[in-house]
Amino acid sequence: MQKVVKLGLILLIVTAVSAGALSVTNNFTKDIIEQKAIEANLAYMREILPDADDFKVVESSAIADIIEVEEAYEAIKGGDTSGYVIKTKTSGYGGDVLILTGINVDGTIAGMRVASQSETPNLGTKITEDEFGSQFEGLSTDKELKLNEDVDQVTGATISSTAAIKGINASIKLFESVLK
């Protein structure tokens, strides 16, 4: 009996010290990690809507109604809203595909950037390349986009291409139904 208590105590000490070390590290890195995540989004948003002065988060409960949508940002130019950037998460071939879609207030797509993906190298990863992504630029948001009608898919990567267009369509839906 005494032995059990002793073993338990030793484990308790080891785990308590570990927990302490973790909380110190977490405290130290937490803010930097958060900052990096915002900066990463911001870099993409500046690429998509280069003439915006500022971006601010759109706070609306309606955003959660479209399941693919993660977050939405409003682009401000000279005090007015010049467009929106919407972040979506869809399932690709190798995991989640995070896409930022920029939409101008006039209802055209300003551009898209793949923020994160784990698709097959040299196949699905081509959704991150300009050849695929630039096809969306200038398309109208008045209807849902279809693969191989409005844009050409990446050859041999139907699932990755579908994930991309799904994300963009979710952004269009949010723009048309809520933000516009």
């Binding site: 484990l11 080891v14 785990t15 973790l22």
Partner: peptide
């Protein structure tokens, strides 16, 4: 416990 603690610390630092 020791290994997991180090891995988690490294993970946070790398992130």
């Amino acid at each position: 416990v020791v290994i997991a603690t180090f891995v988690t610390i490294i993970e946070m630092v790398v992130q």
